[in-house]
Amino acid sequence: MDPNLTEVSQLFERFKAAFMRNDFDTCDNLLSQLKVLLTKFRSLPPLFEETPKAIHELTLARDIYEHAVVLSVKIEDQDAFERDFFQLKPYYTDACGRLPPSPQEYPILGLNLLRLLVQNRIAEFHTELELLSATALENPCIKHAVELEQSFMEGAYNRVLSARQTVPHETYVYFMDLLAKTVRDEISGCSEKAYDSLSINDARKIEMFSSVQDLFEYIKEEHPEWEIKNGFVIFQRAKESAPCKEIPSLQLINQTLSYARELERIV
């Protein structure tokens, strides 16, 4: 047995043990060591060399990165998530012909979609979506993220929030909580444009706060321009485009002169 491989396997066992204990500091330490050790395998991306142990090494490396992604969610580090996910991705896209599919693949892809949604990177969300096959789109984990994006775009926010109860995987909860915050900001933005005023109780319900106190704090922090009077929240609606009272003469002169100059050049 290759000594490198044995070392990695042993270290990974210790990592998994720490992972089960939720001892994330140890996990983080072990993970960095593992990543360094993985660079010694020549069968891994980007080289993809055909070595006799290639399949074994690839499977092990994929397993390690899958754990790394889940770990980054648990320690709530989005940057680490992105890094680990990109390291993991070639194992799903380029090595799929050689390895048996991983049971973790769809949950992790769905998780990534969710992350892009939370970070409001919709263009990348759709780019990732194009890579998925029709069967992948039917998977509950992927479907969940896709439906969320749809509801989010439509504005059916309560559907987004109720989706938290139906998460297909425990790791999704972290991102769903983040999403709730994004959704609340969206709702506030919409409400101040759509309503003249709301009763405090209605506002609390629409913004989905459990107590009036929370609502007041939120308003104080995020929207100090909203007014609270006689049990109503009064929104300062943006000024409508008022009828133009005076002629913007300077601008007009500028434009007319430029037309004249251009016309002169043509004739």
Partner: peptide
């Protein structure tokens, strides 16, 4: 959807914010 009125309300609110329609909502 299970709660069509609430959905309709937030969908309309978003459409107003995005400038697709020119309207106001009365929640009460």
């Amino acid at each position: 959807s299970p709660n069509p009125i609430a959905d309709a309300e937030s969908i309309v609110a978003k459409a107003i914010r995005d400038g697709a329609i020119d309207a106001t909502l009365d929640h009460a």
